[in-house]
Amino acid sequence: MTSPFLSLTWTDHLTGRQGFLVVDRLVRGVCSGGLRMRPGCTLEEVTGLARGMSLKEALHYDPEARYVPLGGAKGGIDCDPRDPQAYGLLVRYLRAMRPYVESCWTTGEDLGLTQELVDRAVAEVGLVSCVQAVHPLLDDEDAARARLAAAFAVEVDGIGLDELVGGCGVAESVLTALDRAKVAHAGTRVALQGFGTMGGATARFLTRAGLTVVAVADVKGTVANPAGLDVESLLAARDAHGAVDRGALRPGDRELPDDAWLSTEAEVLVPAAVSYAIGVEEQGRIRARWIAEAANMPVVAEAEALLHARGVSVLPDVVVNSGTNAWWWWTLFGDIGADAEEAFAHTRRSMRSLVERVLTRAEADGTTPRAAAHAIARQRLPVITDRFGTHRRD
């Protein structure tokens, strides 16, 4: 594995807390990757996430599309997003990273941050946009920015389109795996860790596809009901960080310990919160047949090897949660418009095609889905570099 193009650590002069930026690679001088905020965030973590972004971009490469894959990057801040000092820290971090946001790094919300918060901090710093580095690559910048702004203004049943497309991609990944295995949607049970942007949207799409969500874990613990949770009621009872108001629970809903979601009787587990959630010890408690990585890097490598050996299929993050990033660029470059149904249809087609390709490759090679996805991406990365180069051609 090659070293990243750029790796830096920033120390806040007021709090002593650290932030990180890793640019794994550039395509036409630009890279893409969100900004996360969580206590304990490390440079090693951000480096792995940046590499994952390069793979996600490569996996969505379509030579006929307007969207041109970018390089991979990631930002991270070591702070609890609930800390009263968090917003000021975010602003100072972005002020320090301003030269990179202006020139090469396009970013957005990730774990611990909302797009609204990122946009507010970006404006306070004096930046045009969190994705302004890509503007010179657009055919019509004004039209593209207007299209993306209009897309972010779209809501479906009270939830923004920008939150929903990622969950649509996760759900389609799960449904594709079920369909390949000829497992009916109805009666298939799902347990989720995390009920924020990605977890909540995933729960909605899977429920509407006929699956039953039997457990949801948030910062307060796990809420479970073997007969199925009322997902829409729980979505309406969330706070800004995805924690569910327990006053919204029904008589049959039970409150269980934080890690109870791991051993829930369910066919599908969706870790949609933190990285490294499933280690060697945790994997031994899992009874599910599929794990869909809605979060970034939730299953450690040693645990994945043990899961694979006993027939549990891990659908990897570089595929499963790549829909949000792709939707930004499909919209900005003009492959789709600011319309929910068009966005969902395009996401479903693209994710189903990608998951089918990955699972077919894994079966043919006798490897894990992650190994297959990485193999496909490695084949595409040099093709992208040969076609577009690493530096912007002015």
Score class of each variant (00 low, 15 high):
G169H: 11
R66N: 03
A181M: 05
R378P: 02
L14H: 15
T347I: 13
M198L: 13
R204Y: 05
F5T: 07
G311N: 09
V312Y: 11
A343P: 02
V122M: 07
P382F: 13
A372C: 05
F5R: 01
H60E: 01
V30R: 10
S263N: 10
A146G: 15
T42W: 09
G33T: 03
D62G: 04
A237P: 04
P316S: 08
W327M: 10
T47I: 03
T2Q: 11
L211H: 01
G108I: 04
W105M: 05
N321E: 09
N325F: 10
L211T: 05
E356V: 02
L35H: 12
R370T: 11
H60L: 08
A73N: 02
T176K: 09
V46M: 05
R147V: 14
E342L: 00
Y61F: 15
S353E: 15
F344L: 01
V131H: 06
V319L: 14
G228C: 06
V174E: 06
A338N: 13
D339R: 08
T188P: 05
Q193V: 09
L234I: 00
S173A: 14
A123I: 05
L178C: 14
D259T: 07
A292M: 08
G200Y: 12
R51C: 04
L111R: 00
W328I: 13
R378K: 12
P63H: 08
H308P: 01
T2F: 02
E44V: 06
D142S: 14
D162A: 10
P257Q: 06
E302Y: 07
L175F: 13
P298W: 13
E232Y: 03
S173K: 12
L43H: 01
R208F: 05
L127M: 12
A248M: 10
M37Y: 11
I291Q: 11
A191G: 00
S233I: 06
A303F: 00
L111A: 04
